[in-house]
């Protein structure tokens, strides 16, 4: 498992709390999250919701305009990852161990996708997450996600 310096560590110093909106302002503009233009929507005690606007260059099937499934994976990866730091109220380095997505239905062409990540259990090493994606009505999800994150550093004995 590799661990490197992380970009958001400086934004969310240890013990200084964790603000997903502030962190996404940085994360959502850089790298792959910036490419997808990921936007902060809201958060609670153990959840974070982000969104991605439909774009032609994110499409996997030009005939239908359906987004690449990996766009949903990226969205759920970021939202669930941030839900762990939100629940902890601090940043700790971690890596996605695995992520499963069930696609209940395709995300229609032109529609914005929301992804809510929830951290439902946390141990010293592992963050257990789940979440769902929707097009604006959480009662009509388009995908369900579940996964685990492993802590990659900063362990206290």
């Amino acid at each position: 498992m590799t661990s490197g310096t992380t970009d958001i560590g400086t934004l969310a110093p240890k013990g200084g709390g964790f603000d997903p909106e502030l962190v996404n302002k940085f994360m959502g503009k850089h790298g792959h999250s910036g490419f997808l233009a990921m936007e902060y929507i809201g958060h609670g005690e153990n959840w974070v919701e982000l969104a991605i606007d439909w774009r032609e260059d994110l499409v996997a099937d030009p005939e239908t305009g359906i987004l690449a499934s990996a766009v949903i994976i990226s969205l759920m990866d970021n939202a669930t990852s941030m839900s762990i730091w939100t629940k902890l109220n601090e940043f700790r380095p971690q890596a996605t161990m695995d992520l499963r997505i069930d696609y209940l239905r395709p995300s229609p062409s032109g529609q914005r996708v929301y992804g809510r990540g929830i951290c439902y259990h946390l141990t010293n090493s592992i963050g257990f997450v789940r979440g769902y994606a929707h097009n604006g009505n959480p009662d009509q999800p388009l995908a369900h996600a579940s996964g685990t994150f492993i802590r990659t550093g900063g362990q206290t004995a």
Partner: peptide
């Protein structure tokens, strides 16, 4: 490092 979502893509 690569983003997990890009690897998934």
């Amino acid at each position: 490092f690569l983003h997990g979502g890009a690897i998934s893509g």
